[in-house]
Design a protein around this nucleic acid. Structure first.
Lengths: 241, 241
DNA sequence: CGTACAATTGAGAATCCTCAAGAGCAGTGG
DNA sequence: CCACTGCTCTTGAGGATTCTCAATTGTACG
């Protein structure tokens, strides 16, 4: 997770294939890099943007991680997702021109700011950038569908298992270990995200530990048996249908 | 819900302001209309596309309604949403080139087929069409976030109330009554969508009826007190956080 | 070393699910 | 026209999962 060392913009960024530049020509990547307004560093618990703010930019995560949440009328937070390096944040704002959720850094983090006006302009000039933007939006939608499935049709144990597998797979994509990683979020954040209570998360992690499938040391997670963890997710609870 | 009378393409379609043509110039709408491959009619329970199919088109609902669902490895269906006239279907396929869910007609229905190749080409030519596409994708994402919130943080009663309010608002947008409408889906579909069992849906509807907030006659729903229904949704359950 | 926060663990309670039976309604065929 | 079948929806009773409340342990930081 420690990639905070100074890095040049898109052309030399090792995340570029996971991010917007994927599939672009060299000169096109350079044009994209030219509009990256700044590589804004954030410290833990710093807010990237607030729900309701006018959206002038998208953000690409370069390092660290983020938590996005919606505040309801009572002021309760409701976590809708976590963002890792290479992922785009702020896509939900594309319709109304303001962010529909807030996003906060879970740890020291770095983002590349992409001013929407310039990004849209560039998309008009570079068709493959537009294609990539659309692809990323489609991915976001597909991933949201997975979350809907998770919340609507899974038991507590399956949710936790799925959550760990999601992280495992995303870390793997980033070139990190898929079986050993640190959670950057608190249990409370996980619970909120999964529609569970913090106690249930704790107990389910304890159970998975007791069976030997995982080892938990505070925020540190080690997956001892990836296959067994996947097996937990498979058997869909006999819900109606 | 009965709009099956023959209607011309986009320029004279009364849904155009709710659909892709919104914000386009007259001649641009004409260009869009020209690529609408066909107005395909479907009968109830007919499948529009199957999960896994190569995605060659997006579909705009012109009449009737649809149910989208994901099939998991056990063959269980998991409903991820319903589509009403003016809404675009198939957006989840934009990333991988194949549909990640299946979509089926709930009743006799009509769709406008938009071949992706031509749509993308046209987006390149008409910037405001591209803007509108992006806006629709952003809306889809924001609406998925609402579903995540619904499933993760709401009690059975709140889910039912929210579901009814969502439909109410969408029918209202379409120019129909916001307090009286027919459900085009079975209880089973509602239950599956809301992550509940059919029995719980039935019981909650019965309770709302007993309090007098709604009147239920089979598929027919009448909302007697919209304000009270909204009040049910507000008080978020004191979940962790 | 003490405070604040995060996480675990336990016991009882509530919501929602499971299983089962019955009612309402549409379509079919004698 | 009516019984029959099939499907949808409702209603009831009991049980399981998850939540709530409360106390304790663990960890980070000044």
């Amino acid at each position: 997770m420690d990639q905070l060392s100074p890095q040049a913009a898109c052309p030399s960024c090792k995340l570029s294939d996971l991010c917007l530049p994927y599939g672009l020509q060299k000169n096109e990547v350079a044009q994209l890099a030219a509009i990256v307004k700044s590589k804004r560093p954030l410290h833990a618990d710093e807010i990237l943007y607030r729900q309701g703010d006018a959206s002038r930019s998208l953000y690409a995560v370069k390092a660290g991680s983020f938590r996005s949440f919606i505040l309801n009328s009572e002021g309760d937070e409701q976590v809708i997702g976590f963002s890792l390096p290479g992922e785009l944040i702020g896509l939900d704002a594309l319709q109304y021109g303001h962010y529909t959720c807030s996003t906060i850094a879970l740890e020291t983090a770095l983002v590349c700011e992409l001013p929407l006006s310039q990004l849209n302009e560039l998309c008009g000039k570079i068709p493959s950038l537009q294609v990539q933007m659309t692809r990323i939006l489609g991915k976001e939608i597909a991933s949201d569908h997975d979350k809907i499935l998770l919340l609507g049709h899974r038991s507590a144990k399956e949710r936790i298992a799925t959550f760990l597998l999601m992280l495992s797979s995303r870390y793997c994509t980033l070139g990190f270990s898929s079986t050993e990683f640190n959670l950057s979020m608190r249990r409370q954040d996980i619970a909120n995200f999964l529609g569970l209570t913090i106690e249930t998360v704790s107990r389910q992690l304890a159970e998975l530990t007791k069976i030997g499938i995982i080892t938990v040391k505070q925020r540190g997670i080690q997956i001892n048996d990836l296959a067994l963890l996947k097996a937990i997710v498979q058997p869909c609870p006999p819900l109606a249908y």
